[in-house]
């Protein structure tokens, strides 16, 4: 109420909030993360352009790590082809068909976990929609972001999509076997990455020939070592929505 004269008029007040617009998504992501940690599962968000070789990397990872229990959800606008490829490679997988949505959000990942035996896994991949823009800003509950960038995509790709590459805990330079056929210098890609994130971690590999895959395995093992085996802690304030 107007406090000057008590006339009953309304008052214009500024309400300070200072909160993320994606706070709702971040809460669901934190919930997913708590689930993964509780079960001792290393969850990785694999992003990259369409055709950057995300699915091929996962197929090769299944061959590389036969002793680990791998699983995946694979997002695509219109098909479940990638999930079927992963199944054929021995990775239990579920497709998330996003329709016109250009990215995954934490709620989509949460829904995909229902009825999927993800708790029994060592390593859970979230293969995001092929897109270098939108997926970057949505936390899904992963432990790390892995961005696949094929050597055929151009040396300055990181400069064109800084938001995505800035979020990368690891960049996989894929399709290394094609380098002899291209006018591409890997050092230039590394230089571009160093201009969008301070300490880029980069691995050059080929899912086809197996080149560089040991370093990828070492990175996964180092990350797994940081995930506590089955915490079995009750999830604080755990409310199960959709």
């Amino acid at each position: 109420m107007c406090t000057t004269c008590g006339c009953g008029d309304t008052e214009l007040v500024p309400v300070e909030l200072h909160e993320k617009i994606l706070a709702g998504n971040d809460r669901t992501a934190a919930h997913n993360r708590a689930h993964f940690r509780e079960a001792g599962v290393l969850a990785l968000n694999l992003m990259g352009s369409p055709g950057s070789g995300k699915t091929a990397v996962l197929e090769a990872t299944a061959r590389l790590l036969p002793g680990l229990r791998l699983g995946a959800v694979s997002a695509d606008l219109a098909t479940d082809n990638d999930a079927r490829r992963l199944e054929r490679a021995g990775i239990p997988a579920r497709a998330i068909t996003t329709g016109q949505a250009c990215h995954l959000d934490a709620a989509m990942v949460h829904r995909s976990l229902h009825g999927f035996p993800w708790q029994a896994l060592d390593l859970f991949f979230i293969e995001n929609v092929g897109n270098l823009v939108c997926p970057a800003i949505y936390d899904l509950g992963q432990e790390a972001n892995v961005v696949a960038l094929s050597v055929t995509e151009g040396e300055d790709k990181p400069l064109k999509y800084p938001v995505m590459f800035q979020k990368a805990d690891l960049v996989l330079l894929t399709k290394a076997d094609l380098l002899p056929h291209l006018d591409v210098e890997v050092d230039r890609i590394r230089d571009a990455l160093a201009r969008v994130l301070p300490d880029p971690r980069v691995l050059l590999l080929s899912a086809r020939t197996g080149e560089g895959m040991e370093a990828w395995r070492d990175w996964i093992e180092a990350r797994r070592a940081r995930v506590p085996a089955k915490l079995r802690l009750p999830l604080a304030g755990h409310v199960h929505g959709g």
């Binding site: 109420m1 309304t10 008052e11 214009l12 007040v13 500024p14 309400v15 300070e16 909030l17 200072h18 909160e19 993320k20 617009i21 994606l22 800003i137 938001v163 800035q166 301070p198 300490d199």
Partner: peptide, 22 residues
């Protein structure tokens, strides 16, 4: 030493709302 990004440069924030209250 590595660089650090300025605060809020990678964020989308609802800062405040001006509203009429009784």
């Amino acid at each position: 030493a590595p660089g650090r990004l300025a605060e809020r440069a990678d964020a989308l924030l609802l800062e405040s709302v001006e509203m009429e209250v009784p």
